[in-house]
Nucleic acid binder design. Structure first.
Lengths: 99, 99
DNA sequence: ATATTTGTTCGGTAAATTACGAATAAATTG
DNA sequence: CAATTTATTCGTAATTTACCGAACAAATAT
């Protein structure tokens, strides 16, 4: 799965971010965080009709893609956007879709 | 997999488009098409180090997501962006990421 | 010290994705 | 009509994703 010479780093990063956004639940979470700056996963399990373990997996995906981050505020975890990467993603998408 | 009441139609559409963009090969194709308006899959198989059947599958995904369309120009097929949906996607992403 | 709260990780299953080569389809060229 | 060109579809295998409930970990509250 190495297209090193054909596909740019930009394209790979865009694909990575897009993949992370490619699920309704994850879009929901991202949109929430972009509006209200942070939330606890408990807030989400109360709203969304999925098992908490499933939500945890989705949050993990978003974390691994770099789009969100969790700050421990025991016994809970406060989730926020990772602004650095979020802004990079914004920039990449903006540029990509502005042609 | 029905989150009807929690997740907006916008979010679902965004997720659908994002999912289609979530692979380096597909990003490459989209970027190419957004630059040069159209191409033949033969052009792509010459460049990209993947089997033509694999490419065909990726093109099918993009088609099913509504992002591209193919016009038969026998014996080849000319691929272009589906501008209507492409513009919708642009609009959705722009709005989503502008918060 | 024990119970409670909050979330992650584990184990498992079903479905989707990615990839390839071979077979097929459809039109054109010789 | 046969051979060639072009791209899709089929058959198959490996990997990843999505989902759940149960078990676990970590801190707080009783």
């Amino acid at each position: 799965m190495e297209y090193e010479e054909y596909i740019t780093e930009r394209q790979k990063r865009l694909a990575r971010y897009a993949k992370a956004m490619g699920h309704p639940i994850r879009m929901y979470v991202l949109e929430l965080l972009s509006r209200q700056s942070c939330c606890y996963s408990g807030d989400l399990t109360e709203i969304l009709p999925i098992a908490k373990s499933t939500l945890s997996q989705h949050l993990k995906e978003l974390k691994e893609a770099g789009l969100i981050q969790g700050e421990i505020q025991a016994p809970r975890i406060k989730y926020c956007l990772n602004w650095e990467n979020w802004n990079e993603a914004k920039e990449l998408f903006k540029h990509f879709m502005s042609d």
